[in-house]
Simulated scan of single mutants.
Amino acid sequence: MPDDVAQPAAFSWPFDVRFHEVDALGVVFNMWYFAYCDAAQAAFFADLGTPSSALNEQGLDVLLRHADVQWVGALEPHTSGEVRVRPVSVGHTSLVLRFEVVRVPDGQLAFTAQITYVCVRVAEREPVSVPEPLRAALERRIG
């Protein structure tokens, strides 16, 4: 992409670290980062105009297929953070989102993930094509 073309801004989902999310070392336990990403993904889809509830009404959902993660920092109890979400790609039945979890207000990066989701028909647990409204919305945001 040429340097003079602006990349779409990442979607941001804010959250506060709750005490029960912290482990014995005084930092957020690793599984909670996936919960943050899950909540951010749902909020991102709603922001795109294709909320998870609309997919569910069609008998569809997106399931996590694969995740590449890296912890580069830590969040502590009673701090705030945000999850930044960017779509990376959209395939026939799958989509890839990139997540960055940062501490607020200093922006210190704590966690990154690139997660592949597969769109499925819930009743059969069979992959289906990414619905066109979701596909179009994601493609508009790929930078």
Rank of each mutant, 00 (worst) to 15 (best):
L95W: 06
E76D: 08
V102D: 00
E126W: 05
V83H: 02
P131H: 03
A137H: 03
A137S: 06
G107I: 08
G107C: 04
E124A: 15
R140K: 12
S80E: 10
I115S: 15
R86E: 12
Y117Q: 10
D106E: 10
V128C: 14
R125E: 07
L95F: 13
R86A: 12
I115K: 09
V122F: 15
T116H: 10
W71H: 06
G73I: 04
E76A: 10
S80G: 14
L95P: 03
V96P: 13
P105H: 09
P77C: 12
I115G: 05
A110I: 04
A110N: 04
E126H: 11
F111W: 08
T93D: 09
S80I: 03
P105G: 12
G107H: 03
G91W: 14
S89P: 02
P131G: 07
V122D: 10
G81A: 02
E132A: 13
A113T: 08
V120D: 11
R98N: 15
S89N: 06
T116P: 09
V128H: 11
D106C: 05
P131T: 08
E132H: 08
P105A: 10
E76I: 10
Q70H: 15
R86D: 10
V102W: 00
L97S: 02
Y117T: 09
R135A: 11
E132N: 09
I115L: 12
V130Y: 04
R86T: 09
S129N: 12
Q108F: 01
V96A: 13
R121D: 13
G107R: 03
E124C: 07
V128D: 06
V88Q: 13
S94C: 07
S129G: 13
L97K: 00
H78P: 08
V72N: 04
R121P: 01
G91A: 09
L109S: 08
G73W: 01
G81H: 00
V130S: 03
E139F: 04
R98D: 14
E132D: 15
V130W: 07
F111K: 01
H78E: 15
R98F: 14
